[in-house]
Design a protein around this nucleic acid. Structure first.
Lengths: 225, 225
DNA sequence: TTTCTTTATTACAGGATGATGATATACTTA
DNA sequence: TAAGTATATCATCATCCTGTAATAAAGAAA
């Protein structure tokens, strides 16, 4: 679970980030509109916490951009301006929740959890794609009703594919999604090839069709054709 | 854009369906839980409008199942019971929006649009030019509803043509667009001719007209004449 | 017409990319 | 700590793509 916090007040930001990391999330921090925007366009996040008031731009624009680049990401708007208009505006632009400042960290955590539950994984007890069944809560994958043991990366890869079925996934996006560390630089996509191969093998060994389509020079597409 | 309306009141349903079809959507209608559930598991929809109160089951279960089978579909819950609890419950199960009955059809339309905008990329998800359809998200090209396999350069060429239709494209511009803007010193346009020819062939083989018009000494124009 | 220039077609070699298996490093867990 | 697993990298092979060159055809100009 990878979060992005956009917040210009450094002390507040660090306390939020350290809390979230302690709670078990991966969390990155952007303190300006510029930085947030470039991160959004370069990396993928499961959820973003966006402060509306930024020194060099409006958080609303970030909401819009994030929706564009990561349509499946969750967005929580943070704002000191506790006005209904702000809330409406944020939600209209594609935010999922609104949290007026100041707030308790526990409250934030609960919002993130509930948003995440709502958005996909945990709220849904099962994801089904033809003969493949995923039970996100338990990190269990079944093919033809028999369980398949996947490693974490393989599991995340499959989950990412299934929640983005029929969409072309750039190698860069997959690599960024799988690699734990943000600043990590990829000089090669070999490890993607490797995970793809292992995942394919485990699925095929259970008599599953090969839904992972390679797109030369671009990436992969998970599709039922 | 393919919708599923789940609603047991026949008069209301028909008026909604005819409105949506008139507005330009493809819309199917299920009047019972059973019918809706089997449609959900058999077909795929971009968005579902689900009435919670059904004669033979609960719409909540439909929300859950739809999330399971089509995690990327949008879900709008319709309910006469305008209680906060219902709303929360629907959203928690994975719905994206909640619309209390009665509602204006225009309001419904606006919700669908905004949901779609929020879920998918801002706007363009299909480009259509006569018998040619391009789905950029999927990097898929269809002619007469049958897919055509293009290489990356061919795909980029076609996309470039279609987004610049009726405009004369200089060979230099095409070359620069295709050769990844590396100040590539192409002393010949042979590779353009080559790609044009391959693209033409693949399209013609599917019974597509030749929209690529050569302009002697200048370049090409993609036009419907 | 003839001649020159531009485009179309064909064929193919070299290069880029992906698949696979083996190996080394990092990480977990007992 | 060591054993065992997961992950990243390397080496190799297979595959596909792309630009080029050679040739044919078509357009422009005389």
């Amino acid at each position: 679970m990878k979060l992005l916090l956009v917040e210009d007040q450094e002390d507040l930001a660090t306390s939020i980030v350290s809390f979230l990391i302690a709670t078990g999330y991966r969390c990155e921090w952007a303190c300006t509109y510029q930085e947030a925007d470039s991160r959004i366009s370069m990396f993928s996040y499961d959820c973003a916490l966006i402060d509306i008031m930024l020194p060099d731009g409006s958080g609303y624009q970030l909401v819009r951009n994030l929706r564009k680049y990561s349509p499946s990401a969750g967005i929580i708007v943070l704002s000191a301006k506790n006005s209904v208009d702000d809330k409406i505006k944020g939600l209209d632009l594609g935010a999922d929740d609104y949290l007026p400042k100041p707030f308790h960290l526990a409250e934030l955590h609960s919002r993130i959890k509930s948003l995440w539950r709502r958005r996909q994984m945990n709220g849904v007890m099962e994801l089904v794609f033809n003969e493949i069944k995923i039970i996100p809560d338990q990190m269990v994958v079944e093919v033809h009703h028999t369980p398949v043991i996947l490693t974490r990366k393989e599991y995340e890869l499959l989950l990412f594919f299934i929640t983005n079925q029929n969409r072309v996934m750039l190698k860069e996006v997959l690599a960024e999604h799988l690699s734990g560390d943000q600043a990590e630089f990829f000089n090669s996509f070999d490890f993607i090839y490797s995970h793809i191969k292992n995942l394919r093998k485990k699925l095929l060994d259970q008599g599953c069709a090969d839904y992972i389509q390679s797109i030369y020079g671009v990436g992969y597409k998970f599709t039922a054709l």
